[in-house]
Design a protein around this nucleic acid. Structure first.
Lengths: 230, 230
DNA sequence: ACGCAAATGCGTATTTTTTACGCAAATGTA
DNA sequence: TACATTTGCGTAAAAAATACGCATTTGCGT
């Protein structure tokens, strides 16, 4: 038996947010250790009596003062990570989405060092976090097309043009506004409300809301969400 | 810093095979420890200097004497696993597929205790391997419909009826034989060869072969594999 | 007040894909 | 030789995706 195994278990969180028509990721500046000063993903070691997901939630609370909208395990990296030269680290990475209205970071204890970066202008990352982030972006792109996670990046009430922009900018693809609207509406999980005018020029647009319960019902009835692009 | 963390890292492999029109999974009988005599997934602790996937491959070789056709990380379980009462274990589970012709187990050292079980007639499993297996089966079903992994469960040269049976039996759904064939052939990654007669009654059927290179080319050109069912 | 640009909301024609079957061809067997 | 069985191909109807046209509703400049 390998009871003298010298591997430590950590968790990391890739937190995505969407604002100003751009995808952002949450990073923290390392305070000490071999990567001092470098920007890295939120993360840390798992406590002995703590579930993996609980560890991620704790780190998000402690290091950035946020609670996320969506959280799922992404992948476990552990072939080369050296968080500390004295030991090997296996890191379980989690994928998280936050509502755009949550993008203001609460300036808590450690949260002072947390910042949102647009993925188009990232600083150099510490450890192998470049790689982890690229896997997460792939996952995000992939999930956008077969699960309704885009709504977790938008405020509760949103415009169709925002949803459309989100898809276009993240997937980097053109899309017909009218067909997109028609398709999404045909799913039947969006609720229509009153309006908003000031936000954009032109004719005021209706605000919509994602009805998660309705989606779950449709899903159970055999419905498959899917957005394809030419 | 949590340098006194007492968590060990293990890997487990869920190996699927397909024979006699049924999905099978590879299990080994535990020789010692708290789960002695119980059937469990192939797995074990990771060596300090060994990549996670390398650990899985080593365990597969040592415990079952097989090399797999397809291997990918499935999920990391670690909230409740107690492989040993003295410590907590985090287990990185891998998902593997083997070609039907590999189903004969080499009776190597430890491999004597390895056996294939049809998923319709499983013994009680040790640890939380019931749960891990159910996650793996979900993943298999899901992947079948958007990635060409069915071919990794079949021999190199196979009949269309075998492919069809594989899909039907694993997904538990009816399917129109003619439309299925038409759709798969339209993808253009199957090579047609000569024939086989003896296998089934009726008119002899052509043998086909999956051209992986061709698939990769199509994929890069923007092609998406997808099999949907009514 | 008027014309114009901008963004929205809805509709319709065309093309493509999916689905539902019909049926001839090729074998083994009684 | 008749028949059951499986295979291979085709075609018509239904459904979905795509490509646009265009009226509507606002703000703004003149």
């Amino acid at each position: 038996m390998v009871l003298n195994q010298n591997i430590k278990v950590a968790v990391d969180a890739i937190v995505f947010g969407y604002s100003q028509h751009q995808l952002h990721v949450l990073l923290v500046q390392q305070k000490y250790g071999p990567m001092q000063g470098r920007w890295v993903l939120v993360g840390g070691f798992v406590h002995d009596d703590e579930a993996l997901q609980a560890a991620v939630e704790r780190e998000l609370r402690e290091e950035a003062g946020i609670t996320v909208n969506y959280l799922e395990q992404l992948y476990t990296f552990g072939d080369a990570v050296q968080r500390d030269p004295r030991m090997r680290v296996v890191s379980v990475a989690y994928f998280a989405l936050v509502n755009a209205t949550e993008l203001k970071l609460h300036a808590d204890t450690d949260a002072a060092d947390a910042r949102w970066f647009p993925i188009s202008a990232l600083p150099p990352l510490g450890y192998d976090h470049d790689h982890i982030l690229s896997v997460a972006i792939q996952r995000l792109k992939s999930k956008l097309s077969y699960q309704p996670i885009g709504f977790d990046l938008l405020p509760e009430y949103f415009l169709f043009s925002d949803l459309e922009n989100l898809y276009c900018s993240i997937l980097g693809q053109e899309i017909d506004r009218r067909n997109f609207r028609k398709k999404i509406l045909s799913f039947g999980f969006l609720e229509e409300t009153d309006r908003v005018s000031k936000k954009n020029a032109g004719r005021p647009a209706k605000l919509f809301r994602f009805n998660k319960l309705k989606y779950k019902q449709l899903e159970q009835a055999g419905f498959y969400f899917e957005i394809k692009f030419a």
